[in-house]
Design a protein around this nucleic acid. Structure first.
Lengths: 243, 243
DNA sequence: CGTAGGTTTGACTGATCTCAAGTTTGGTGG
DNA sequence: CCACCAAACTTGAGATCAGTCAAACCTACG
């Protein structure tokens, strides 16, 4: 994807505008942000645990995830990211990365100096609120993931993860809610749900048998959204209507 | 515990001062915050999921936790809190609670209007940074919990939870790092680690057999802190040196 | 001293993992 | 355009970690 300046600003303004009311001066201030656009391959590391971070990345196109590693080598994905997401807003105040950020697909990223975003958030209360809300919703999603991984059985857990992905895509105005191509492998689903890829595969088949989804490899269709939500124990309130 | 105004301010100033440099004007501004002190019994709900929140609670004395419930009734604790912690800073920007907050022991709480904290954080950059860091470290801990619950086996998981609890108590300057009385039951540990109380009990015995801890009911002693950290796969970097 | 909540122990069950072997698919180079 | 390859997906069989159920056993507190 060839991204230009306007893509960056319109993406950013759309994102922040969903989180708080922005006035003309806010929009103007955002348009003065410096940035650098880069294309990345799938599976590129954007941030590695322990890195000292000075730029935040705005995902313009493609998908990414954040993950951590356990001592025994087990990998845990802690969040998925869709176009429009600003990754690593935490580095506005915490200099060192406590996790990795990696692309899932080829991706276009706008790198923006964290200090500039911080200054902007401080100077313009609406933008500060939007950034703050984004950070807090992020945290709310982590809490839901702790619940998901800690207390739901495999089938429910996977279904929940899919529902969240779908709901966030929809909220961001990306593509159809009923049918889409998963940008992630079953291995990724396993790493996000604390399961093994083999078991994920079995449970996806079980979800299809239950009539909650229709699926062929990564091509996914939600047969019945209310039923899917029930199966998934999914209630979108934790997304605070704006993830 | 009979708390007075000075306890509230000194607790708050100590807490925020660990997160950012505060100058005299910051301290003065904090001292102008209004609040209301209340005593709570053990197991009191301070916040219930769905509540519209206007006050943040500063935990002056006692212990508390935040938890969510799955559709099948399973409970997942998502964080533990120790004296000095400010609970629910998320309500500075998100009006509805997405989880419950409950005391674990009898507790003394200072209730502070969220709007006042928000105004203070906006007016005084140092305080804004401190509050922001607290929120971000909170989120970092959630990420670690996702990893803990998702990818570590039962023994490691419990050990990790204990290490974190210990490390945070120590960072807050509370009591001895080697020996302390757990303010939580094995049921609580189970709800925090996504296990059952029965299995928690067995794993605590296993940790004792391994020589990592010495324990009699809730009286806990870390026999060998380096060994305990190894057993727990614990590395405090995710606490960003100030939880 | 009786009771309730918490802890401990045992025997059995079951969800998920592990290991191992195919199968399908999309991409790459001839 | 076809052949091949690597990655992802699929399926089966057996092992294991953690759950379930049930019963004692403490111990603090009223």
């Amino acid at each position: 994807m060839a991204a230009n300046n306007d893509d960056v600003f319109s993406t950013l303004i759309r994102k922040l505008g969903r989180l708080a009311e922005l006035d003309a001066a806010d929009v103007q201030a955002i348009r003065e942000l410096p940035f650098q656009i880069k294309s990345h391959d799938a599976n590129d590391f954007l941030v590695s645990e322990g890195d000292q971070i000075v730029n935040c990345c705005l995902l313009l196109d493609g998908y990414a995830c954040r993950h951590k590693e356990a001592g025994d080598g087990g990998r845990q994905i802690v969040s998925f990211h869709i176009p429009g997401d600003i990754l690593d807003l935490q580095h506005l105040l915490l200099p060192r990365a406590d996790h990795n950020v990696q692309t899932l697909t080829p991706a276009t990223i706008a790198w923006i100096p964290a200090a500039r975003i911080k200054a902007l958030a401080r100077a313009r209360p609406n933008i500060g609120d939007a950034v703050g809300r984004d950070i807090l919703i992020d945290a709310s999603i982590f809490r839901e993931w702790v619940l998901n991984v800690g207390r739901r059985d495999a089938k429910t857990r996977i279904a929940h993860m899919l529902c969240e992905f779908l709901a966030r895509r929809q909220a961001a105005g990306l593509g159809s809610p009923e049918r889409f191509e998963l940008p992630i492998s079953q291995e990724h689903i396993a790493d996000a749900t604390g399961l093994t890829a083999v078991h994920v595969n079995r449970m996806l088949h079980a979800l299809a048998r239950d009539g909650a989804i229709v699926r062929n490899r990564r091509d996914l269709r939600i047969a019945d959204w209310p039923r899917m939500q029930r199966v998934a124990d999914f209630d979108a309130h934790y997304l605070h209507a704006a993830a």
